[in-house]
Design a protein around this nucleic acid. Structure first.
Length: 262
DNA sequence: ATTATTGTTGGTAG
DNA sequence: TCTACCAACAATAA
């Protein structure tokens, strides 16, 4: 369940569960997930100490005491959780840690995520644009990147990981509502004022989602203002929210108070 | 049975 | 090199 806030939440959990710990045992059998191969993955991690856990956008990076790096992406349905001795449903990778009672399990029903070992940063990591949480949002740079997009919508542009790392479907939807901009607006039509509003809105939705995750009431109802609320009244102007496909992704917005700019 | 799903990647074309 | 578009990947939940 991962966009930037969920991945950051995951990172904070992993810091508590794994940082400084020695990996006593690794289980991995799924070649789609453990790269370059489950066997190489197990061999590289067994006996190592996790020295740092970083995040950029939706990617995680674990540093080990021998210089090995483990890059993790949760795909659409991946997450980490603590587990007892029995494998969890859809568990794909498991870590037994020395001096720790609980294992750490990577669970992923759809298997779109992956965990990959490397000796240096991989392309998926280095190609990312700035991270809104860690790096802040440079408005001039964001304006330049949006201006380059002559045809695509502002929402699709925001979801481009080279523009800003970590913004996904939900965060883009929530931010554009907050910024009062119709998601179908052309990226190239954004004014400096629009860009400033988007930057503020992204900070707002990321902080808000992160705070919800920290409360830890998983399984609670939809915590978002706009996402998944088609047909309900806009919290701001009471117009009923609408939904449509944009670049193949479900998009919800308020036709009453989000201005369309062409 | 049908529909929808919080994401990336690789191909093609321009 | 960069943008734009599309299909593919896979398995669940409503």
């Amino acid at each position: 369940m991962p966009e930037l806030p969920e991945v950051e939440h995951t990172r904070r959990n992993l810091v508590r569960w794994m940082k400084g710990a020695r990996i006593a045992e690794v289980t991995a059998t799924d070649a789609r997930i453990a790269k370059p191969s489950p066997r190489a993955f197990v061999k590289a991690l067994t006996g190592r100490v996790v020295t740092a856990i970083d995040r950029k956008g939706k990617w995680l990076r674990l540093l080990l005491d021998d210089g090995t790096r483990v890059f993790g992406h949760l795909g659409m349905t991946g997450w980490f959780e603590q587990a007892g001795p029995e494998p969890l449903r859809f568990e794909r990778v498991g870590f037994v840690l020395a001096k720790k009672k609980k294992r750490v399990a990577y669970v992923d029903s759809r298997r779109w995520g992956r965990l990959e070992i490397a000796r240096a940063d991989v392309a998926g990591w280095t190609a990312l644009g700035p991270d809104p949480l860690a790096d802040g949002i440079d408005r001039a740079l964001l304006a330049t990147k949006l201006a380059r997009r002559k045809k695509t919508s502002v929402k699709e542009a925001l979801m481009d990981q080279k523009v800003l790392a970590g913004v996904g479907n939900i965060q883009a939807i929530e931010a554009l509502w907050k910024a009062k901009i119709d998601p179908r607006s052309r990226a190239g039509a954004m004014t400096a004022k629009d860009v400033a509003a988007i930057a503020e809105a992204l900070k707002w939705t990321i902080a808000r989602t992160l705070a919800d995750l920290a409360k830890g009431d998983a399984g609670a109802e939809n915590p978002f203002v706009i996402y998944g609320r088609k047909g309900t009244p806009c919290r701001r102007c009471k117009t009923l929210l609408v939904r449509a496909d944009l670049g193949g992704r479900t998009t919800t917005w308020c036709p009453g108070c989000q201005a369309l700019k062409r």
